[in-house]
Design a protein around this nucleic acid. Structure first.
Lengths: 344, 344
DNA sequence: TTGAAAGCGCTACCAC
DNA sequence: GTGGTAGCGCTTTCAA
């Protein structure tokens, strides 16, 4: 195997020699320190640029005891071995990358399989990143609690800030779901299903919101009915198909996520049920696709960009030693076609 | 601002003291070197584990002159400022993360805006990663050519291996498109549109495949007709809507990507055109959603997992100094409902 | 305003 | 088999 032999990259000492100054001065000049005479500073910077010199980050990081990188952790539950399928997480990842990059930090992506307690501490101890953002179905609460106790700059995207001791950012899942179901009730729907996987924290909260809306309704409704499903399109499609086969009457589906709602749309259509005439459907997330389904999906928008901004803001504040608090973001009802109009 | 004061993490010297050996021995033991007596080695490893000791990667990397990380670069063209929208790239990112993580390397995600020539060299010089994988509509050929000349471990996901001097991995876009269009012709379609953005290298090749299929057809066909569009759902929807409004007759759409095909599906349906009865549609990529549209989308599958595997395989081989060659992967026609059956 | 020197935490070359 | 030692390339006192 022939060894790659690119010429060794310039180091700071080389630039120092070229500029006829000491390494210290180059270091200061490159950092923009006013300690260095302006003229000299500019000269040094010019030489460095011309030579394509870039500071060796390993050396810098070792010296500074930081990495200038943030880990973005994507816990994989059911989808182990799969690529991230949920567009929501993907959009989140994109926004996080934007926010982090903007601050001059690197983004270290970590796909993580349970159990989390095995490697979250390792990730922290390795010091490969200065802060950690965990997105996704937050499994492994215990591991998070434990890690957070000794490590500040850890922020988790998730639903229930109140119940946790670690810092979280999340949408108001309960309130959002409640709003969505209330909307269905207002439109005259009476037999409303909850369709989703209540084993994750966020979906549990949405289920709670669904229940709350049902219980507080002033009109006579069918009692709650939960159709569980794994959060993948195929599983959701099958689950809905099976449910329809059971012939239990229903006139609305409140889905735990848009991805699931879209599968429901397909299953309903395949079974000859019209949306929204026969069955109204409401999703959660407002992924890009939601506006483009047929019929267009009514859903609860999570403001991902703002979520990402908040997440990153909090990690940086905590990296600075501040004890930044958890945050909850509102969900916004986006009315499109799939929920139908008022029934007489 | 209160400074975070987690207790300083253990370093190798601490473990050495605890184990009553030298730092060298700890280093060797942790690396699993057989130079250290087995008994002693296990003892040291046990102590390290017990103390939650993890090697400081900055120090290790500085010493070893490598970073144990791969940069995955996502060039953003039209979608600047947007999160990555195309599910194809996202799936690719997921698989890349899997492959890279599996080899014990970190994944450094870089979203990059043109111009590439400004920061590709910087990325290389910063040594934050040992290799670079560029995915996405490969813009900036010149910058890639220039960078690749002096830097081996750079692999680009893209279409036309032949035309480039840098190492690429990609699907046989031309052949795939040709297969898809031939299929439409075989099914009796005569007025076939190409729908997509021919400004990117990959789409250009698909367009070429489309042309080839038309020109080689043995039946009388309408001449080529290209409906250009930016690669976002909204733009594609509008473009198709506008085109339909012009009333030029057509009975099939060959779309440059699934995302575009799905938008076409919507626009056709909104215009009262039935798929596949009135218009057949074929996409490209086979994203997860393709099987779930209504009607289900006929498309050309790109084997993303294999693509990612190949990409990562090549970077690692090149990191090892090997002069690994470009690779082209076949596209597979996945026949579903949107192309219809043979017309009499 | 500048330079010398110490050292961040690790690995690998030597000598024993 | 094991330990001393010399750096990897940078930043930052400290002294001038």
């Amino acid at each position: 195997m022939k060894k790659a032999t690119g010429k060794a990259p310039a180091k700071m000492a080389d630039i120092a020699r070229l500029a006829g100054v000491s390494e210290s001065t180059v270091s200061r000049a490159l950092a923009g320190s006013t300690l260095v005479a302006k003229r000299k500073r500019e000269e040094i910077v010019a030489i460095a640029r011309e030579r394509g010199y870039v500071i060796n980050s390993a050396a810098r990081n070792l010296r500074l005891r930081r990495s200038e990188a943030i880990s973005v952790v994507i816990p994989l539950g059911h989808e182990a071995g799969q690529p991230l399928t949920d567009p929501f997480f993907v959009e989140m990842l994109g926004h996080l990358a934007d926010e982090i990059t903007q601050r001059g930090y690197g983004v270290l992506v970590q796909k993580m399989l349970p159990p989390m307690d095995a490697w979250l501490p390792r990730l922290i101890a390795s010091r490969r990143s200065d802060g950690i953002v965990v997105i996704g179905h937050s499994t492994g609460h215990a591991a998070l609690e434990a890690a957070a106790a000794a490590y500040q700059p850890l922020i988790v995207w998730g639903g229930d800030a109140a119940a946790r001791r670690y810092c979280t950012v999340g949408t108001d899942n309960l309130g959002g779901a409640r709003t969505g179901v209330e909307h269905l009730i207002r439109l005259g729907r009476r037999k409303i299903l909850f369709f989703g996987d209540p084993s994750t924290a966020e979906l549990r909260l949405r289920l709670e919101g669904y229940r709350l809306a049902l219980s507080e309704a002033t009109t006579a409704l069918d009692r709650e009915q939960v159709v569980p499903t794994l959060p993948t399109p195929d599983a959701a499609y099958e689950a809905m198909r099976t449910f329809i086969g059971r012939q239990r009457p229903f006139d609305a589906v409140f889905a735990g996520s848009d991805l699931i709602a879209i599968s429901a749309l397909r299953a309903l259509s395949a079974a000859g049920l019209r949306v929204p005439q026969d069955v109204a459907v409401v999703g959660f997330d407002d992924i890009a696709l939601a506006a483009h389904t047929h019929p267009a999906l009514t859903t609860l928008r999570q403001d991902i960009r703002r979520g990402a901004k908040t997440l990153v803001d909090l990690v940086f504040r905590r990296m600075g030693g501040e004890d930044a608090p958890s945050a909850t973001l509102p969900a916004e009802l986006i009315v499109r076609e799939s929920c139908g109009a008022t029934r007489r």
